[in-house]
Simulated assay, not measured.
Amino acid sequence: MLSRRDFLINGSALVATALGAPSVLGASLPGTGITVTPTGTSTPTTRFQSLVVELGLQRLGYTVKDYVPADPAIFHMAIASGDATFSAVEWVPLYDDYYSKVGGDTTCVRMGSLINDCIFGYSIDKKTADKYQITNLAQFKDEKIAKLFNTNGMDRKASLVAGNPGWGAAKMMQHHLELYGLKNSIQLQFGNYDALMADVLTRIKSNQPVFYYSWLPNWISNVLKPGVDVSWLSVPFADPANGKNMSKLPDGRDTGFPVYTVKVLGNKGFIDKNPAAKKLFEVANISTADISAENMLMQQGQNKPVDIRRRAEDWVKAHQSQFDQWIAQAMQAA
């Protein structure tokens, strides 16, 4: 996890990354002579979406430095202070607290809908769900149910794979255990998410119950398909903290989390002076299916930076008309 000091040290050592030359050379490009620093979460699966946006910035003439990974609290501070320029990993409303703590609209700007209809929630394997008719987190108060999902052998609590403790979702999960009276029934299991999910896959292949937090888009949904291999669970009642944010799936299940949108977060000073970049951030959009498919390739071994960059470039080629429209709109806004 990077501290702000580490962020500054790492950022100062970065060099410009050649993602491909702009299609039109010359000072007429709005980004000519301007350097930007992308940042975002350290989760490798979020790199692809940032690269697509970075390719757009380069087409507009901006020089794009290497991506600086950091926990959300750190990269929000970096963008607010101008140590970084933007992040294509701004989960809304999940990151509302981080956004508010760095000054909100006075220091930053949230733009567009880079990824829509992002679902977060709790899943268990469908075999166990069907056998014991488990549909709701409240059922974990039954010690017999909770014990089914215990993996540490030390207590009777259900082990819930929760991922990185620095994630915004970690706060939500801890809040849910308090809200629904489940602290004595469920134990959050923190650590590297991909490593923890590798254990989940091993368990499910051995016909053992699994209980984990996940989201869409995510590679795991390509392996453990909701409704086929696993089932989303409902929370006991609507979380008041979600306010008016929709948290229900089409079938009526309430996952406890709002249905999120991933936006682009930018430094306000930069955005105010760069209408072309702002317009790009506003219009760029990638489907959840495309994100999940790319993440799946990472899990299959194509996870080196060069692999992810190649797929971002391939995505642009496959969506060239859409991408060119983004650039045209950005150029018009300049």
Rank of each mutant, 00 (worst) to 15 (best):
L265Q: 12
Q189L: 09
P226Y: 09
A146Y: 02
F270R: 10
K157P: 13
K244F: 04
Y213V: 12
G166A: 13
V235D: 01
F211K: 12
F190Y: 15
M172K: 11
G256K: 01
D155R: 07
Q208I: 00
F190H: 15
P236Q: 05
F237R: 14
Y213G: 11
Q187R: 15
D229F: 07
D199I: 06
H175D: 08
K273W: 00
I271A: 14
S231F: 00
D251W: 01
K248H: 08
S234C: 00
R203L: 10
A277S: 11
P250L: 01
A277F: 15
P209Y: 03
V223M: 13
V200A: 12
A277T: 14
F211E: 14
F257V: 12
F257A: 12
W167S: 15
D239Q: 03
A162T: 06
L160R: 10
L224S: 13
Q174I: 02
K205S: 15
P236M: 03
K248P: 01
A195S: 11
W232S: 14
R203G: 01
P226V: 01
M173R: 04
P250N: 06
Y193L: 13
G256Q: 02
Q174T: 04
G252C: 02
F257Y: 14
L196K: 12
A277Q: 13
P165Q: 10
M154S: 15
Y260D: 07
N207R: 10
W167M: 05
M197D: 05
L249C: 06
W167V: 04
G243Q: 01
L160T: 15
D251P: 01
P250F: 03
V235G: 04
N152K: 11
G266V: 09
G181P: 02
P165A: 09
P250E: 03
G191R: 03
Y180E: 04
P275S: 07
S234K: 00
K205V: 01
K157L: 09
V262S: 14
L148H: 05
N152E: 14
I204E: 09
K273Q: 13
W167Y: 11
H175S: 15
S159K: 01
Q189P: 08
V235H: 03
F211G: 11
W232Y: 15
E178R: 15
A170S: 15
D254Q: 00
L249E: 06
Y180T: 04
P236Y: 06
Q189H: 05
K244E: 08
L148P: 13
P275T: 05
D254Y: 02
F237V: 12
N267T: 04
G153L: 09
N245P: 02
I186V: 13
N218W: 10
P240M: 04
Q187C: 02
Y180W: 04
Y212M: 05
V259M: 06
G163W: 02
S221V: 03
G266N: 05
N150R: 05
Q174A: 04
G227I: 08
N222D: 08
K157A: 04
P217I: 07
V200S: 09
T261F: 03
M172D: 14
Q208M: 08
A198R: 08
I271L: 07
P275H: 07
A170E: 07
G252Q: 06
N150K: 02
